[in-house]
Design a protein around this nucleic acid. Structure first.
Lengths: 348, 348
DNA sequence: ATTGGCTTTGGTATCGATACCAAGCTTCTG
DNA sequence: CAGAAGCTTGGTATCGATACCAAAGCCAAT
């Protein structure tokens, strides 16, 4: 009786089903393993009849390629690590969604890391991600610890810094100038005739982009000879509640304020809702501007004037760059500016 | 002259820096590679002096362990794939955050997949994730294609179905009964004296949980002999705009409606904001209830009555189960119910 | 008919870690 | 003091794919 095939696997059905491997598929299709590999990674290199037989074998056996093995031997993985401060924030989840939407079909997987606005944790994540031999790494933000910067610079990976523009990019930088955008918004307020303008931010000691927006606003006010020191800053993260509290606090502290620029739409939205509750006329008593372009701004009364940030587009562009550079490991610096826009509505 | 060491690596510094491997660390520390491996994965198995030498060598060489190699040989990876419908939705990003917060420190990484509410895409993602030989897989939702269900059942992985309760769990099921929660909320409305109650949902043909909530609501109305056919359903995804539109549409279509139960807080929030804009008294003219417990409900006027869903806790619990089962590959079914709560505020 | 070039296919080494087994050393027990 | 037991350490096979090189088959051109 012929038992050769059965004997080749020590204990058949011992205690754990042996995983179906590419070898098994090859044997069943009557081809070499490498041909199976090619049929999967570059189908046109295999003739039609063989390809069909291989596909049948794969289906029959329920074969799933082992990524670890493939990536180990090819020395690169189709994995894209992305580090964002937090995922709960709509701004960052939009960026991730943009990236994800354009990479998933290409066989790439998103590896998600959250730094919680902590550069040390970002550093730890970068170190961990290096062990994945990814082709690219995406970090939201441009501020890194010394060690993190060194790791990113030394590596062969394509490094993409997202969302804000930086003077000295490590490699690829995709984003827009928060400073300029904030300045534009402040200019809008000045041109509308507002003269005593306050800025409200939250968590600015950790959220550098919010802090930069504050600077941009003050730049503009100074240039126009206006008071440029009315800044109200909260330690906590932005919430609707803080925005609601802030608008009252500003009007109490500086009663002659005629416009408030909030660091983001969450704060501004909370402020608008509070004004409506208290019957504070917007923009009659005080004008309100936000930053971000989140959906909440369309339903407030009045609708919120804001800066629409290209969140999804930034993620999308990052995906495009990753796909473009996948065969060109050469590092060359590149800055890609993605346009933002002012959305002037009734709150100013 | 002694050149043995140099010659061993063909072309030293050829065109690509050779990766630092565990071998290099071992050589530098003067130990075997396996000892380095142990020093990293289970430090207490290595004596203090050796451990110190190894740690120095790692630092000096900037060694980063190659995860692919490690996971290939150990036949398992410290990766947790999670499939959610979309990441932009605050509900799902909260779940992911809960999971992430409790796994990151343990050396696990989140692998994010989005199904876009499409069971076929979920199936493709599951197939792709199987190639990672993960120890566990997390899917948000309990509705799968036939093929997906088969894959999940056949695999050795711990399978965790999240967020809703299911009659026949594949393995672990963590969540709460949307039907019961919706019924509870409807009961609250009935007890408050509302008699003509409408339900508004969006995207219910794909979002089965929303549809289940609708059923729960109708259950209760029927039980109390009330009209149970006032359902307004939108094809699109939930937005504040749709909520705003819906409240007007309901009051126009069924003018005697005295309460509206929205499938989620986004819709309810939009409705509340619209009522405030139009001067529709809430709850005087019409009461409004939501579902979810999102922050927006705290800042509306009036504040929104809603069901607080245990989003973060569900993610947290999933992380706990993953850590618990990591050494017990035996499959046993388990249903973990995470409590929700009714938050009665001024809108009802 | 022969040569050269192209396409298709397969064998073998390799990626970089961990598992398993064995050996050396110390410590404890009868 | 012999031998068992426990701890630390190392050698070698192995995980499952891809890269590289070689061979075979086919067609066109000389």
């Amino acid at each position: 009786m012929p038992v050769s095939e059965e004997l080749s696997h020590s204990a058949p059905q011992s205690h754990e089903r042996r995983r179906v491997t590419m070898q098994d598929v090859a044997r069943r299709a009557g081809v070499g393993t490498i041909t199976v590999s090619r049929a999967l990674s570059d189908p046109q290199k295999v003739s039609a009849p063989l390809r069909a037989r291989i596909e049948d074998a794969i289906r029959d056996l329920g074969y799933v390629p082992n990524r670890m093995a493939g990536w180990l031997s090819s020395r690169r993985s189709r994995v894209v690590p992305i580090i964002v401060p937090v995922i709960q924030n709509a701004v960052f989840s939009d960026v991730v969604e943009g990236l994800n939407d354009h990479l998933l079909d290409q066989g790439y997987q998103i590896l998600l890391g959250t730094s919680n606005y902590d550069p040390r944790r970002e550093e730890a994540l970068i170190a961990a991600f290096l062990g994945w031999t990814p082709q690219s790494i995406v970090v939201l933000g441009t501020e890194h610890t010394e060690a993190a910067r060194r790791m990113l610079t030394d590596t062969e990976m394509t490094v993409i810094e997202l969302f804000e523009l930086v003077d000295a990019p490590i490699e690829i930088n995709i984003g827009f100038s928060h400073r300029q955008a904030a300045r534009d918004m402040a200019l809008h307020l000045v041109e509308r005739g507002y003269r005593t303008i306050a800025f409200v931010g939250a968590f600015m000691h950790r959220d550098r982009r919010a802090e930069i927006r504050c600077r941009g606003c003050m730049d503009c006010l100074r240039e126009h000879g206006l008071i440029a020191d009315r800044v109200l800053s909260y330690e906590e993260r932005s919430t609707l509640d803080i925005g609601a509290h802030a608008i009252c606090a500003v009007l109490e502290k500086w009663p002659d304020t005629d416009a408030v620029f909030f660091a983001n739409d969450v704060l501004a939205g909370g402020a608008l809702m509070e004004c409506q509750r208290r019957g504070i006329a917007v923009p009659g008593r005080v004008a309100i501007a936000g930053f971000g372009g989140l959906p909440i701004g369309t339903r407030t009364t009045p609708e919120l004037t804001t800066v629409v940030s290209p969140r999804y587009q930034v993620g999308e562009m990052a995906a495009r760059v990753i796909l473009e550079t996948k065969d060109a490991p050469r590092k060359k610096k590149r800055v890609i500016e993605v346009p933002y826009s002012l959305l002037i509505r009734q709150s100013t």
